[in-house]
Amino acid sequence: MSAALLVMALRDPATTAALDATGWNSLIAMARAERLIGTLAFRLEGLGVPDAVRPILADTRDDAAREARQAIWEADRARAALAPIGLPVILLKGTAYAAAGLPAGRGRFIGDLDILVPRDRIDAAADALVAAGWEWVKEDPYDDAYYRQWMHELPPMIHAERDRMIDVHHTVLPLTARPTPDAAAMMADAVLITDGLYMLCAEDRVCHAAAHLLADGDLQGGLRNLWDIHCLCEESSERQDDFYLCLFEKAAHHQLTAAVWRALRLSHHLFDTEVKAYHVPIEVDYKLRWSDRAFISRLLARNGWGQETRKALVFAFFVRSHWLRMPPLMLARHLLTKWRKGHRPQ
């Protein structure tokens, strides 16, 4: 059993008609583990499901609506905090999709509030947030220094009264990563959602999601990120004929061509994203490469009890995530420091 079951249900919800009780239990457990249960609940809305499943999905949809409402309120509070210093709030990821009512936001789990501000204004932004009630949460001086020197975001802050986390980014990849996306261009191209809230333009949304999925982390929660990419691409290519060409152009500018192309191959393979192949002006096809198979195995590493499987592969991707972030010597120093502090990979 693998998360292929979940992928199938998201891609073609009607196939769930064939599931028995064990199938449903597995689907629900893996969707919860991947934090895709809200998305699944919206995909299955209006379809005939067993009586025992209906209230589970209804609860999930209510939860998702409340989460979206909370997330948008949190974005509004950040807007109010940063307005006095003249900083617009550029929303990233889940909150942006929810605030803009994009299909990618339907039922989507939203964790922290992620915003993007110019690097030279980041201290002013942090001061303004502290003045409005946010507090630093990282207590470890090494972690704090690490964030400030090498990461693409400030150490996380949490609001004292509302208990919600904010991540203030100044770019979309760690400074130690090999690609260097053009954060200033992303900010310049940002589009207004409403009332002083902005999001990245359509192409940059996909670039960011692909960078986040493939050029940064260890693919924890990767299916959710890939589903974002699928929804973002489907929606934008429907509205804009030359969307994929524009996307390739932006990806090249942000040094993210490899990440974006792999994301499209994976999304096309798993979710049937209707990508458009090109011969002119550039050569793009969506045949899976050998290395894509490792990514797919990693993305699907989940059993019917919601547990992660394929430990060795998962560990390999954990190692890869560090390799992507740091040159070897720095990586060695970082791992030694973390090991001494008692951190162990899961």
């Binding site: 009780a21 449903w24 629900i28 025992a52 589970i56």
Partner: peptide
């Protein structure tokens, strides 16, 4: 036995 459950619990 074998019903669709609201929750999965794991003792691992």
């Amino acid at each position: 036995d074998g019903a669709i459950a609201d929750f999965t619990v794991r003792l691992q």
